[in-house]
């Protein structure tokens, strides 16, 4: 057991180091410099000396290896650095955004999984019927829709036209609210981005669930259960669904890791103050420290979800447990 943990731990450290290195190298390999976004169009009016001073202020005049070593040391000390563009500690930037992202992505993941599981089970049970075909068609259609487009449609219909839900942001700007009023306000703002997120992610789970369910329903033990007179509902939920859930768990765990990364496109369309938008803007603006830090945090959360999956799997799947013994 201990050996297993040590080996896994070593793997994790290697992966972290590799990803930290990539996070450092990739932004610097992109064409363009952070200078434009720091100075704007005015940058052309600066003379050589002042331009160099700006670069020096960012520490970008140091040799690459030195920047790299300093970055690794800071990272090891848990120091994420300061944003070039915003001039604020990145830890603060992430803190302000992570709760919104977790709210959106967390509820989105739960909602999409629930919808996918229920829909998938139902479709498999009614295999070949009009319900199955209808659900399958809808799932395929939704899955192939770009999320920004779907979001725009929802905004145009339920925001601008019907005015049922607010169009942008995570809460009403500039109006201080408390208690229930605040909760209602946040929920109303969450509605459209959440629905968009669920609509584009649920089909994945639905397809996995439906397929797994079909396989399980074809197993001899299901025929046995039916033969001994177990009720259809019990067959479906007690015998079939529990086994069919395994691949869904895998999908869930994979997605769980990306909860912290936010949904870049949806956050941008709805001006939701999440981590995804921060990452996107950082890439656009060549804000190297923010790119490095944000992607590092995402790497960490993916690895944490992986570790969690490693720990949970033996509990939910006896085959894994037996195999290891």
């Amino acid at each position: 057991m201990w050996r297993f943990f040590v080996a896994r731990g070593g793997q994790y450290v290697l992966v972290l180091l590799a990803s930290a290195t990539l996070n450092f190298a990739l932004p610097r390999m992109m064409p363009g410099s952070p200078l434009l976004f720091l100075a704007g169009e005015e940058v052309g009016r600066l003379d050589e000396g002042h331009r160099r001073e700006l670069v020096r202020r960012l520490g970008l005049d140091r040799p690459l290896w030195e920047q790299y070593v300093r970055y690794l040391i800071d990272l090891a000390r848990g120091e994420l650095g300061t944003s070039f563009q915003r001039g604020r500690p990145i830890a603060d930037l992430l803190r302000e955004r992570i709760s919104w992202t977790l709210l959106l992505m967390g509820t989105g993941l739960l909602g999409a999984t629930a919808a996918g599981v229920v829909g998938g089970t139902w479709a498999a049970w009614r295999r070949g019927g009009s319900t199955d075909v209808g659900l399958l068609f809808t799932a395929m259609a939704l899955e192939s829709m770009p999320s920004f487009w779907l979001g725009m449609i929802l905004i145009a219909v339920f925001g601008a036209h019907l005015r049922w839900f607010p169009i942008f942001g995570a809460r009403t700007p500039g109006v201080p609210l408390e208690g229930t009023a605040l909760l209602v306000d946040v929920a109303r703002h969450l509605a459209l981005p959440l629905v968009t997120l669920i609509l584009v992610t649920a089909p994945g789970t639905f397809l996995v669930m439906r397929y797994a369910m079909l396989q399980v329903l074809g197993e001899p033990y299901i025929a046995t259960a039916r033969a001994k007179g177990v009720g259809e509902r019990s067959v479906l939920f007690r015998h079939a669904m529990r086994n069919a859930l395994l691949p869904v768990c895998t999908v869930f765990m994979l997605n769980l890791g990306f909860v912290a990364s936010g949904a870049t496109v949806i956050e941008t369309v709805f001006s939701y103050p999440g981590v995804g938008r921060l990452m996107y803007e950082a890439v656009l603006n060549r804000d190297y420290p923010v790119i490095q830090a944000a992607f590092f945090v995402v790497t960490l959360s993916v690895m944490a979800a992986n570790a969690l999956a490693d720990l949970l799997y033996p509990l939910i799947d006896p085959r894994v447990r037996d195999g290891r013994r």
């Binding site: 925001g159 942008f168 001006s271």
Partner: peptide, 11 residues
């Protein structure tokens, strides 16, 4: 308010 997307801001 900061509205990141142009067409959303017009909506």
């Amino acid at each position: 308010p900061i509205v990141a997307d142009a067409s959303v801001s017009f909506n």
